[in-house]
Amino acid sequence: MSIPPKAGPPALDACDDSGLVVARFGEIALKGRNRPRFTEQLRLNIAERLRTCGIAAQVEKVEQRFYVHTADPESAAEALTRVFGVTSVSPAMRAPRDIASIQQVALSELVRGGFSERSSLRVEARRTYKDFPLTSPEINQVVGAFLHGALGGRVDLSRAADFTVGIEIMRDHALVYARSLAGAGGMPVPLSGRVVCLMSGGLDSPVAAWMMMKRGCAIIPLHLAQSEESKERFLALCEVLQQWSQGWRLRPIVLSHAEIMGDIRQRLLENNAGRWTCLFCKRAMLRAASEIAGRYKGQGIVLGDSLGQVASQTLESMRIISSGCELPIYRPLIGLDKVEVMALARKAGTYELSARHSAACPYLPENPVTQASFAKFQALLPLLGED
Rank of each mutant, 00 (worst) to 15 (best):
A71P: 08
A11M: 11
V189E: 15
V254D: 01
S180K: 06
K347L: 14
E229Y: 04
A92R: 01
E63R: 15
G385N: 07
G324S: 07
L315E: 06
T314W: 03
S205P: 10
L307C: 12
S306K: 04
L303Q: 14
E168H: 03
G32N: 11
G114Y: 04
G85E: 10
G149I: 07
E228A: 07
V111Q: 11
E60F: 00
R127E: 00
I220L: 14
C53N: 04
F146L: 09
A288C: 14
V341G: 13
D162C: 07
A14K: 09
Q64F: 06
K282L: 04
L42F: 01
E40K: 13
S200H: 12
R49I: 01
F115V: 15
Y129L: 10
N367R: 13
R319C: 07
V195G: 06
A29L: 14
V189S: 12
A258Q: 15
T70P: 14
A343F: 09
A71Q: 12
E48P: 04
S180E: 15
R275C: 03
Q309H: 11
R171L: 05
R275A: 15
K231M: 09
R319A: 06
L268Q: 03
A174V: 02
A225F: 02
L191Q: 13
K61I: 13
S230N: 08
R51L: 04
S317W: 05
D156H: 01
K376Q: 13
A160P: 06
R154F: 11
T81W: 08
R265M: 06
S245C: 09
L307K: 07
